[in-house]
Computed example of a mutant assay.
Amino acid sequence: MIGFLFTLGAIPAIYRTYGSISFELYDQEKHKILRIYKYSVNHRIMLGWAPMLLGPIVSMFTDRFDHSTNNKTYAIMRVVFAQFEYDLFKDIRESKELASRFFSTNDYNHALIVTSKSANDEYLASSIYSELNKIFLKYGISILERRKLNEVINEIQLSLAGITQARDYSKLGRLLQADRLILVEDLNITSATTSVLGRINFSIRCVDSETGKVIWSEKIAESMLLSETVDMVVNSAARKLMQKLKQSGEI
């Protein structure tokens, strides 16, 4: 502080705080703590001309620096979470027992069902089915062959728009021999503007065919630029969906 005052801020004044942050991996069934990750925190707030001038530049290259004098800065948690993520993934790679708690060992059979409200949406429905099927297979999710799916649906003459009850899921799941149903619904394209051809919208959810429980659910809204095709937009939406499901731990 003395150097700061005598040099009119050329030498920064430093305010320090200390603490620690802990993460616990907890087994809810056995009421047991599996592992504890604890990190010490040494936070510094620097006041002066140098931090003011260099702060915006330095913060572009590292998460450890935040151009702020706010004690509630997010920089602390960004750094700690990044270290925790690194340590956790390292332990998961090295421990099969720990890995088994984070990854499902069950191989589910999925049936991908895309419903459209009108004949005009058939091309879009077909494109969505094709692109989603590619992405799901790429991520190791087994999808029922479409030919078999259509044969079963035509045989039972089922109104897919009316699949809302657990008994409907169970019946369709048994006929398709599918553990889970991935349903794409509310499919539509909004009108075009001067900058975009339109917006593709649909909702998608994964349902356990035995219990009717929704495993995950998302709404998709993607703008289609003048230089893009339907397949390109749907492929982009499918990739974003898979990344979101992976980040949330749904798959």
Rank of each mutant, 00 (worst) to 15 (best):
I113K: 05
V114F: 08
S118K: 05
A119V: 13
N120C: 01
E122Y: 08
S126A: 12
I128C: 08
Y129I: 07
L132T: 06
L132M: 15
L132R: 03
N133F: 02
I135Y: 11
F136V: 00
L137C: 00
L137R: 08
Y139C: 04
G140D: 04
I141W: 04
I141A: 02
I141P: 01
S142I: 13
I143E: 02
I143S: 09
L144G: 10
R147A: 05
R147L: 06
K148M: 08
L149N: 07
L149S: 10
L149E: 12
N150P: 02
E151W: 04
V152I: 14
I153S: 09
N154M: 06
N154R: 04
E155W: 10
E155L: 12
Q157H: 14
L158V: 14
L158K: 12
L160P: 01
L160E: 09
L160M: 15
G162Y: 08
G162A: 10
T164L: 09
T164A: 10
Q165G: 09
A166H: 05
D168P: 12
D168E: 15
D168R: 09
Y169F: 14
Y169R: 14
Y169L: 10
K171S: 11
L172C: 06
R174L: 13
R174K: 13
R174V: 07
L175E: 13
L175F: 13
L176F: 09
A178H: 03
D179P: 03
D179A: 02
I182T: 05
L183N: 10
N188G: 07
N188I: 11
N188M: 13
I189W: 05
S191I: 05
A192P: 09
T193H: 10
S195C: 00
V196M: 06
V196W: 07
R199F: 05
N201F: 04
S203V: 01
I204K: 00
R205C: 05
C206Q: 12
V207F: 03
V207W: 03
V207I: 15
E210T: 12
E210L: 13
G212T: 08
K213W: 00
I215E: 11
I215G: 08
W216P: 02
W216S: 00
E218M: 08
E218C: 04
K219L: 04
I220Y: 07
I220S: 12
I220W: 05
I220A: 12
E222G: 01
L225W: 03
L225M: 09
L226W: 04
L226Y: 02
S227A: 07
S227I: 11
E228K: 01
V230M: 15
